[in-house]
Each structure stands twice: as C-alpha cells, then as structure tokens.
Design a protein around this nucleic acid. Structure first.
Lengths: 206, 206
DNA sequence: CCTAACATGAGACACAGTACCAGTAGTGGC
DNA sequence: GCCACTACTGGTACTGTGTCTCATGTTAGG
C-alpha cells in the first residue's frame, strides 16, 4: 500500500517534475486523503526517497565485511560495489530518477542529507581502519575520508546520468576515486588517454 | 540596511534557533514588513547565508592564482587558506553560527548546496590542472576532486566547531586532506601521534 | 452486541514564499 | 509651485507544505 503510493509519486514526478507535482495531485491520483499521505510519509520528499532509504545500512554491512587489511579508501570503493549494482540494476527508470534528483535543488539537497546520515553509519568502521578514535570529534580524518568517497559517488552519478550512452558505473567510480588519490603529474601519461582509467582497487587481491 | 536586517536575523537565530524564528518575528524586530524582507532576501535561509555568498568567487580567484605547477589537490588546499582565514577571523560568533548551521538540517543542506554551486566555479581551473576537458560531463574526475576537497572542508569545519578549544582550522584541514590522499599503512607511524599532522602542501617537489 | 483499537478522512491552523496593488517619498523638468 | 517619473515600502490575498485535532468508519475480540 505504502509502496503503491510511492509508485504513484514516482510516476507523477517523472511525468511533470517535482515542484509541479503537488501533494493534492498525488492524493487525487492515489485516491487517498492528505492526512493519509502524511501518515505514510513524513514529507513529499520522503515519498520519493523512502524506497532507497536503507541503502546506508547495506553500505555499512558491505564495508564491515571487507578484509581488515584493506585501506579505508579501497574498502570504501569495494563496499560501494553493492550500491553501484543497485543503481545499475533498474537501469533506465533509476537513471531518469537520478537525473531528476540532481537537477532539482530541493531533491539534490535531500540526497546530500542522506549522505550525511551515512556518515554516522560508516564512521566506526572507517575510524577503525584509519586507527582513529571514533568518538574523537576533533579528529577530522574519518569524516574527511567518508565525505570524499561519497563526493566521488556523487561525481560518478552525475557523470553517469549526464551521458546518453554511459560507461559502467563502476568504471566511472574507479576514475573518480582514482583521480583523488592519484593526482596527475606522476601519472599524467595515463590521464589523457580515453582508455580505462586506473583503478583504485588492488587488482591483485580481488 | 540590508546588512542591518541580516544582523537582526543572525541575532534572533542564534538566540532561539532557526526553526523557532519566523520571518514575522524578524520583521517585527527589524521593524519592516514581510514584503520588504522578501525583497531584500529571496528566502529566510539567504538572509543567514547572504553575507558569505561571494566566498565562492574568492575561492575561485585564489585557485587560479596558484602556480600552474601545483597539483589540483595542493592548489585546492592552498586556495582554501583564504576561506579558512575568513572563518577563523570572526572567531567566536562565526563558530557559533557554523555550529548552528551544521546542527540544523535545513541549513546544513543549504550549506552543501552552496558547495555544489562552487563546483561550477572551480571546475574550469581544476579540469585544466587535471588535464581534462571541462565540458566533458562523462569525465567524473574534476567533479570528484572538488567534491572530495569540499568534503574535507566540511569535515574540518565539523571538527572545528565540535571542540571547545580547537586547533587552528588550517591544521585541521591539513589533517583532513592528508587523510584522503595518504591512506594509513605506509604512513601509520605518523597517524597516531597527537602532534602536528602531515601537511598536504608541497614540502618537497609537489 | 459491545467495545477497544486502528486506519482513514475532514477541517483548522502555522509558516514560507509569490503576486499584485496602492501609498509615499524623493527627483528632475516645466 | 506643479507635474510626472521612479523607487522603495506596506498591505492583502493566494498557493503549497506540514501539523494538529476531531469525527467517522471498520474490524477483531470479549
């Protein structure tokens, strides 16, 4: 039932845009009252994001499941594989939705807020791998590594949705995360080539 | 005059919180009408952020002024020095405001949205330094480097506002940005020491 | 049959933000 | 002095989100 309403929201929003879709429109289409809508979802945004809300937990589990020997950056990259697949799985509809999200300021903000929530979920495991105290708020490193990695995800998603015939999302993410840790200069011979970008993962261990 | 209203907003918001301050309250205190308020500021959030809105341009100029030989990451770090000083200059009031911003979801979202806008400003220069085509939306690297760096800034600001007797913001940012590019393992002998963190700026050839 | 949850609907309300219209002060030309 | 012109200001009504309260079924258990 909840899912049914959520599907209605997606349909309407994909059709006419987010701002142009009022809650009353949704209620009329789903044949429910405003009261019922807001009992199901705390806000209009949540009706659109609610389905993917628990992706953070999946990410957290995937991260803790990585071998302890992996560096934080590599472990993050590998843990993101599951998330990537989820995005690429549904393919066309998900890409349209993602494009709509990055193109709507209110939704993009919500998306980033979701990332901020993931911060808290991933913090313990990343802190452990860094060797930092998770409770030490004056140590910015854990937060920084997670924010940087999630920034790369955002960059990859933007690039993915921008091109009509995109490369695999995993390849794009490899390029994004590789660009952060491997600044050009010593690796400039690769950077300009259109071929596959250097991967951040340890290809040997995978 | 505009600044006067903005100061009123800051006072009220610092006193009772953001959600608890209505624009009617602001108008009553500033002795203006709602119409006038919304002619000065497009939204309540902007009345709080408006003052620092042009920091993005400053950052852009600082970035293009860096020597072309510097890597993107190093140039970003050095360009952020100006922004850092701006934060540390006003000190106590700025820190209280920053803490309020990171603690209020709506304001935190707005802050990240501002970062997203800076993306566009910094993109040409970072793309140049990476050797990427700024117009190529399918290349995530430029976006990734900027998002990662701004994520480090967010991490540094969070750590800065969290501790009652904080270290210098520049030191915190060095630690944050260093943690992303220098994963522990080969540099673990430094990471646990409470002393000054390894700086990301060019101490040798970079 | 009765009642105690429970979901739903209906209406009033607070607040942000927009649009439009009217008054009012300053300014320059005649 | 008078008349337009302009810009700033205030007032009012409106849309839309989200909250709250209350009334109305609806159903399972006694």
């Amino acid at each position: 039932m909840r899912a049914e309403v959520a599907a209605t929201v997606q349909d309407l929003v994909l059709e006419r845009g987010y701002e142009e879709t009022t809650v009353d429109d949704i209620c009329a289409t789903a044949e429910i009252s405003r009261s019922t809508f807001f009992r199901y979802f705390p806000s209009k945004e949540d009706a659109l994001f609610g389905e993917t809300a628990d992706a953070g937990e999946h990410l957290q589990h995937a991260l803790t499941a990585r071998p302890p020997s992996e560096s934080p950056w590599v472990a993050m990259r590998r843990a993101l594989d599951a998330l990537i697949e989820q995005y690429e799985g549904h393919d066309e509809r998900t890409r349209r939705l993602t494009r709509l999200i990055v193109g709507t300021p209110a939704l993009a903000a919500r998306h980033r807020e979701k990332n901020a929530h993931w911060q808290e979920l991933l913090r313990p495991e990343i802190a452990r791998r860094i060797g930092a105290d998770p409770a030490d708020d004056s140590d910015p490193r854990t937060h920084a590594v997670i924010a940087a990695a999630l920034g790369c995800v955002e960059a990859a998603l933007t690039a993915w949705t921008a091109s009509t015939q995109p490369q695999p999302l995993s390849t794009i993410l490899d390029r994004a995360m590789g660009a952060v840790t491997e600044p050009p200069g010593q690796t400039s011979r690769h950077e300009r080539s259109p071929g596959p970008a250097p991967s951040v993962d340890g290809r040997t261990t995978r």
